[in-house]
């Protein structure tokens, strides 16, 4: 097993709060939502496992000397699926195992092309990186069943509406302006006697 401090990217002398902050940042970065239907979801899942194990190892070691600590983030199995159609369940299993050709040939044998058929077709295209085809299939699925959260979420992802953790940080260019505004309001408040 790797050095848990190295996994979390902190020094051995780091305080408990520094470790917790580093851990939370990594959990945000490798959260399963960031890798939904991503062909690298398995690698992200392994990374999360490694981070959780490292955090648990550090907290247990430190609890031995100081006693008591909060347990790590637990994955909630976001891919839970309870569909009635066993053929679709098999297609989903193929997709999750990155066996896209098998998934597609099985899907093409289906006689009925309902919303889930288009959603799964979109998932296969998305994993291949064929984003235009994925989007068109997701749009058809959403148009057929507008209230399905899974279909809506997939469409939002391919529309670029969902940004991964790092990019969200890079898009904070307007934060400076927001901070300046807050500072101005604070100064104004002080000038008006709010600091008394």
């Amino acid at each position: 097993m790797k050095d848990p401090y190295e996994v979390l990217g902190v020094a051995r002398t780091a305080s408990d709060s520094e470790i917790k902050t580093a851990y939370r940042e990594l959990v945000k970065k490798y959260h399963p939502d960031n890798y939904a239907n991503n062909p690298l979801a398995d690698l992200a899942s392994e990374k999360m496992k490694e981070i959780n194990e490292a955090y648990d190892a550090i907290t247990k070691a430190r609890a031995g000397s100081s006693g008591g600590y909060q347990s790590s983030y637990q994955s909630h199995g976001s891919n839970a699926y309870s569909g009635a159609n066993s053929a679709y369940a098999q297609v989903r299993a193929y997709i999750n195992a990155n066996q896209l050709d098998a998934a597609e040939s099985m899907l093409n044998t289906a006689a009925n092309r309902d919303a889930e058929w288009y959603y799964l077709k979109g998932c296969i295209a998305y994993r291949r990186g064929w984003l235009d085809e994925a989007r068109q299939n997701y749009q058809t699925a959403v148009a057929m069943v507008p209230n399905n959260y899974e279909y809506q979420n997939a469409l939002r992802t391919v529309q670029g509406g969902y940004t991964p953790y790092r990019q969200a940080n890079y898009q904070n260019n307007n934060m400076d302006t927001a901070c300046e505004l807050c500072n101005t309001l604070l100064c104004l408040n002080c000038l008006c006697g709010g600091c008394r």
Binding site: G129, V158, G160, R166, Q167
Partner: peptide, 17 residues
């Protein structure tokens, strides 16, 4: 633009790994 943004998102997710 949304298609290329999605490509950037997927490239970024791969970079993080």
């Amino acid at each position: 633009t949304q298609l290329t943004d999605s490509s950037v998102n997927l490239a970024g997710a791969a970079l993080a790994l």
